[in-house]
Design a protein around this nucleic acid. Structure first.
Lengths: 151, 151
DNA sequence: GACATTTTGTCTGCTGCCTAACATTATTGT
DNA sequence: ACAATAATGTTAGGCAGCAGACAAAATGTC
């Protein structure tokens, strides 16, 4: 029989999952008319601030190289993003909005409002606690996985 | 320019995602030798407690019908789960472990320890706050999505 | 200079999640 | 009794994530 504590553990895990998926679904419902996915939007969001190395996006978006490669590929395919090899380091690729990409970006609705919907009115202290709990758990899980495969 | 509050919003969202994925990855790393995915494990976990209607699993696992259908399909394909139509209501399907499934279940390592790794030592009050924040945000996001598509 | 290592990106194949459309079977309304 | 509606499961198509293996370019080491 699970203890009360363990039930709480299960709840944090379950709600973290549901919250992530609900957020993505909300974004996708706004983006559907534009034929864009949630992560594709994040890429455009970054590139709207200026050209960026694909390598750096991996860090900024917290996503695996392989995942980003596919996402960038689809944006390039749609003609929204340009991908050119760096002059000095031919391995790295610079990403930049195309004119079509910049135009589309200007037409997109404001997705940051979704976060307001989700979190507005919640006490800052509570948000800070939630962040800390999730951050701690994530780090421990990453460690656990790393050690498991390494040993 | 983003306010401090909005940065917090972004952090909760980002860590919820990472925490969910880190948990799944940890489970998958333990399950890899047995050729099982994380959600497949959850299904076996439920069925180990007794036969269950597929319909009820949708609610218990908080997953879409279509998603569950695919997951159950793969378990049936591997011969771990039996899927039979209910006698009185032929629409519904009852799921039950096969002998092979029960045997495999007995051999699997204890995955609940992963939650201990993740959350042990965190104050109960903090866990409760995190749950509440995530739950609130999820409900609001679900509402938002529903209204957006409905209107 | 030649060889090994690291970094970066891609490709393949998998899990898991979603929506939309469909078929089948019950249930409900008239 | 029969048509409309609801519930259940499946299929098809798409997004996003991962791991593992590969290729190309840069860097380090001898």
């Amino acid at each position: 029989m699970p203890s009360k504590t363990h039930e709480q553990y299960a709840l944090v895990a379950a709600w973290a999952k549901r919250c992530y998926l609900a957020g993505r679904t909300a974004m996708e419902s706004l983006l559907r008319p534009y034929d864009l996915g949630a992560t594709q939007w994040y890429v455009l969001h970054r590139l709207a601030d200026g050209p960026t190395m694909q390598r750096d996006l991996v860090r900024l978006l917290q996503v695996e190289r392989a995942t980003l490669s596919a996402i960038v590929g689809s944006l390039v395919c749609k003609g929204l993003v340009e991908q050119v090899a760096d002059r000095v380091d031919q391995r790295q690729k610079l990403l930049r909005l195309t004119p079509a990409g910049a135009k589309l970006w200007g037409e997109l609705p404001d997705l940051t409002s979704i976060r307001l919907v989700a979190f507005k009115g919640i006490k800052q202290a509570d948000l800070a606690v939630a962040i800390e709990v999730l951050r701690t758990a994530t780090e421990r899980l990453d460690d656990f996985t790393k050690k498991g495969t390494g040993a």
